[in-house]
Structure formats: C-alpha cells, structure tokens
Design a protein around this nucleic acid. Structure first.
Lengths: 215, 215
DNA sequence: TCGCTATGGACAGTTTCGCTATCCGATAGT
DNA sequence: ACTATCGGATAGCGAAACTGTCCATAGCGA
C-alpha cells in the first residue's frame, strides 16, 4: 500500500498522513526505493487508532505521540500503562500539580482519608478535583461540592468496570492499547452518558407537557 | 473600581478584561465620563465565573458567551438552562448530530430502549456516545463497549445527584447559574474522580511492592 | 493650572495548534 | 523516453485566545 492508497483506505488526507509521519505518530513505511515506501495493514490500523485518540478522545497531537510510544513499549507493565494513559488525558493545566495547599485540595484529601481510596499525592485527578472545587467556590457556588459523595460513588462503579476489563483479559497482547483507548475515550463516553441521564431524570422531575409528552 | 483594580482583584490581565468586554462575556462598566468606567462587585464575581468556565470547564470563549447569555435571561425556565448548559459543553464535533445511522448509534438506541431512559433523539450525548462506540470499533477495541452497563449505572447515580441539587433548592435565584456551573464543571470533576478511583482499584488489583507499599 | 500618568477603546500583532499547499528531485509504469 | 506520482522538506494558513500599541482624553497631585 502506498501513501495515496493508505489515504483513501483511511479517509485521512495524504498531507495529514505525512504530518503524522513527521510527528512520529505513525511509523514510517517500508522503504522499497529512494522515493517509494509501502504501508501495511498495521499502518491502517494505527491510523484509525490515531484518529480515535485525536477526534474522539480530543488529545493534542503531541500527547497522542507519547501515548502511542507507551503502547509501543513492550517493557512497560500494564499498571504503568494505566498511569501513562491517565497522565496523557491529564495533560491540560487543569490536572497540573498544585504547589501550595488550597481549600479544594484540603477537601479532596479529607475525602480520600474517610473514603479509604488509596491514591498517591501526585495523581492528576487529585489536583483536578481540587481545582474544580476551588472553581466552585471562586464562582460563588460552593454548594456544588455537596454532591461529591454521589459523584464519587458513580466514579467508583465506573473505575471498577475499567479495572474489571483489564483483569478479565490481562494476557491479551493488545491489552495496553485497550487500556489507553478505554481510558482516553472513557471520559467522552461518560460525559455523553451523563448528558443522556440528565435529560432522562430531568424529564421525570420536570415533566414538560409541551415537549415529547408521548414517547 | 476601575479596570486596573478589577484586574488586580481578579488576577486577570487588563487587556484580557478588555477582550472579554469586547466579546460580550463581561457587561460594560458604568461609564462616569468619556474615559472612565467603574466596575462593581458583580463584575468581579462575573469575571471569576468566566475564568471557572474557561479554565476549569474548558469552554471556548464563544460558547461561554452563549452560556452567560442564558444565565442572564430570566425568562428561560430552569429545565431549559440544563439543556443550554448541555449544548454548551457539547459544542465540539464529538456531540454534533450524526446524519446516517452507524453501528454505534444503533447500540446507543438499543440501550435506551431496554434501559427505559427517556432521551430525545437530538440529545448531544446520544451522538457522542455513538461516536465513541464507533471509535472503539474503528480502533479495533470493540470489547470496550462491553462495560457500557456499568458506565450507565455510574452515570445514573451522577445524574441523579445533579438533578437532586436542582430539586432541592429550585427557588434560589442563582439556580440557573448553579446548573450551568455544575453541568460544565461536573465533567471535569468526574474525570478527576475517575482518575483517582482507577488508581485506587488498580492498586488493589495489582499490588506493586515497589511503590507506596506502606501508607 | 500644569503636567504626568492612567484610562477606555480600537486595532494590529503574537503564539500555538493542526493541518494544507507548494516545491523538488527521483522513480515507476507505460 | 516521458510523464504522473511519490517521498520528503519547507512554508503557509486559519482559528483561537490573548497581548501590545496607539491615541485622545481625563483624573489628580504639585
């Protein structure tokens, strides 16, 4: 397969593929001569994975490169892959370490204490959650932090499902890829499900006769 | 308060405040003369809300403008505010309507059918979830769709908490603001909680003696 | 009152990101 | 032999979110 065929097969424009090659997201094809390279099924698969991470997962290109490098590294244990995937989606400033203690950080740590969750201090989620709580307070809506326990209960279910997936077929070769895709796309899935569930319960709480009264 | 004082009080640079004024995120100050305007406590509060939506919620400026306009409109019923907030965080292409049926869309609809969730066809979450499932499949990891039920159960808990918050104090004046902040920042909160819960259950499943063995 | 500084407003410039377009010299295929 | 592609390198583009520069004017201390 040459680059133009890879392009039509994947739906990704040729210059874009060249860009991904340059950026190291996609490994180079097998060079058959000075100006000819051939790409295989693996390249097509990789390209689809790239688009999933970028389009659906919303990762920046630079981050996708790191994640893909982690997938390609066979020496990384699976538990590390989880961490790599986490750090990847936590690239943004939201999850960056917080230097000095804030009110939100204290609340997060208090929760970790009483819930018994075993979380290291540098977990990006710890900083992200702290920042969200601080934002609740800064924007004048501290009461939003009250629903923390229900959020945590939901997250627990979800994370257990995530881990169960790993535990079930930890031997599978492509497991690290599954972990990455699951972690990266999982956030998008959750947001989508929350939107739907919100509408569902909203329609129960506030039945609106003017809209979709009969199903 | 003049603009420079508003700047130091909020930590937002003066040119940035001017930018927000231009973009209509922040209402103009009260003009006292041709080159003097004074800003009040409300402006400071609004600025903090803006930063929460942009920085923590990750909204683009244009979207934040729409959300803020919805908050400012006293005629919108609370149930609509929910929809506005949802559409706001669903601005990206991920949640855009899908024209022709896809495998993912069929799976989402099948779930809605058997779960009894009452969700309108144009709910952005429906398209987002469908796209994620399609990405699972395209990237070669369709097994990830298996955890759907647990994800849905978690989302249900979370959405119920969201709605309970509204039901509890629906009379409060700033409720629409609370709904928006809660919906927009809720996604960030959830992602953070998921990161922490993942680490917690990961450490249970794969105890790693080399790392934080003693708490 | 004088003069310095700050102000509000308009507008142009900057940076980053993710592509996209243009060249170029070297084949591959006919 | 000749022309259409190919790969590779480099430059350019457009959106987004600021940031910097100007300028006429106004506040305010000396």
């Amino acid at each position: 397969m040459k680059i133009s065929e890879l392009s039509t097969a994947s739906g990704v424009a040729v210059p874009t593929i060249k860009y991904y090659l340059r950026e190291g997201l996609l490994p180079a094809g097998e060079r058959s001569s000075a100006n000819q390279a051939s790409y295989g099924e693996g390249h097509l698969q990789r390209l689809r994975l790239i688009r999933a991470l970028l389009d659906t997962g919303g990762l920046p290109v630079a981050t996708a490169r790191e994640v893909l490098a982690a997938i390609d590294n066979p020496d990384l244990p699976l538990t590390w892959i989880f961490g790599v995937a986490q750090r990847a989606i936590s690239d943004a400033g939201l999850y960056a370490p917080i230097a000095e203690p804030t009110s939100g950080l204290a609340k997060v740590d208090a929760f970790l204490e009483h819930s018994g969750w075993h979380v290291s201090p540098e977990n990006p989620g710890r900083f992200g959650a702290a920042r969200v709580i601080d934002s609740y307070e800064a924007s004048g809506h501290p009461e939003l932090a009250e629903i923390w326990d229900d959020y945590a209960a939901g997250s627990e279910l979800i994370a257990q499902a995530d881990l169960a997936m790993v535990g079930r077929n930890a031997e599978v070769e492509s497991m690290s890829e599954t972990v990455v895709v699951g972690t990266v796309l999982g956030d998008a899935m959750l947001s989508s499900l929350r939107r739907m569930a919100q509408e569902h319960f909203s329609s129960l709480l506030f039945p609106d006769p003017s809209e979709r009264s009969a199903s």
